[in-house]
Design a binder for these strands. Structure first.
Length: 343
DNA sequence: CATGAGCGT
């Protein structure tokens, strides 16, 4: 095994990190287990904000294993960290194979307790109780290495009483799959709207027509202010509350995605900036393309780092600016402009 | 009631 391969084998992924956690803090924590070769907190290229996950590279595999066994779900800055082996291949994470969904969890069940209840069935890659500032949200996930382990866990645990709650345990479904499923088998409905029956039909007549098909709860012909039948209405069916909620949720999510996309498309990254160029110069040079919401030349010790960003209010303005200004010499150097990365 | 997030030098 090459040296690199050996170190890679001793790499842990650390997720769910508080934004303010530093390399230093992680080093001091993990170095207590055994010698740590390096730590990397992944950060946004430009803003340097933490992306909430890191790698801890141990010198020895045993130490990585020990950290995994003893430090998973430890709190740092009040947040429970999630440890996994570093796994560059995204297949298992994406495929959902071995992933189990659990709901109706007693609020007192935390990450560690969930792990303890579900570890007898096989090797767990990652597990988590979803939570917010208030604490547990009452559902979570356990992702096993093997589907067979997941199936055993479902078989054994579904319907079991954990503390005060009977848990529901099933294969994980992505939100998209779940919504598709809900749409494909719409829930039962008990009301129908009818139109085009003419204005001589009354409540009793309508009831007579429809009673052939089953017991009716209520039958009503819509009337105008003078009590005359309108003879028509709208054909529709009532949505159940959960259906309506799912629809609204999807709509809001799409609107949110669209907002993010638009904001993303309105952001330009400018590289190869002449060091004499500051925020104000950059703003002035780009102001003719549209309203600018933010300009930032990245600096270190009062010196330009030679790159920065401009956020326009509209994607159109950003596109125009990019088309016109890419390659344009400002100061002594040609601008290198790229569309924004995420975040 | 509930179906994450997420992988680098």
């Amino acid at each position: 095994m090459s040296v690199e391969a050996k170190y890679r084998a001793a790499s842990l992924y650390v997720g769910d990190l508080h934004e303010d956690v530093t390399e230093d803090v992680l080093f001091r924590k993990f170095n207590t287990v055994g010698p740590v070769l390096s730590i990397r907190i992944c950060r946004d290229l430009v803003s340097r904000r933490s992306l909430g996950y890191a790698y801890v590279n141990f010198l020895q595999l045993d130490d990585a294993q020990k950290a995994l066994d003893t430090m998973n779900f430890d709190l740092i800055q009040g947040k429970s960290i999630r440890l996994m082996w570093s796994q560059r291949d995204a297949y298992l994470r994406k495929s959902g194979i071995g992933n189990v969904f659990i709901k109706n969890l007693d609020k007192s069940i935390d990450n560690k307790t969930l792990y303890e209840h579900f570890s007898p069935f096989g090797k767990i890659l990652s597990s988590k109780v979803m939570s917010d500032e208030e604490g547990s949200k009452g559902y979570g996930f356990v992702h096993y290495q093997d589907q067979s382990a997941a199936d055993r866990a479902i078989e054994e645990m579904n319907g079991k009483l954990l503390r005060d709650c009977t848990v529901f345990v099933a294969r994980f479904k992505s939100r998209k799959d779940r919504e598709a499923e809900l749409r494909s088998k719409p829930s039962e409905f008990t009301n129908v709207y009818i139109k085009n029956f003419g204005d001589d039909m009354d409540d009793e007549g309508l009831k007579e027509v429809f009673s052939k098909y089953g017991q009716t709860l209520s039958v009503k012909v819509m009337k105008d202010a003078n009590g005359k039948s309108k003879g028509f209405g709208f054909v529709s069916r009532a949505q159940k509350k959960v259906e309506r909620q799912a629809e609204l949720k999807e709509m809001f999510e799409q609107m949110k995605k669209e907002r993010i996309r638009a904001r993303h498309a309105a952001k330009l990254y400018i590289k190869n900036l002449d060091e004499t160029i500051d925020d104000e110069t950059l703003r002035k040079e780009f102001s003719s393309f549209g309203s600018i919401c933010r300009v930032k030349v990245m600096q270190e010790a009062g010196q330009s780092k030679g790159f920065g960003l401009i956020c326009f209010f509209s994607p159109e303005a950003a596109a125009k600016a990019m088309a016109e200004m890419n390659g344009r010499v400002l100061g002594s150097k040609p601008l290198n402009i790229a569309l924004g990365q995420k975040h």
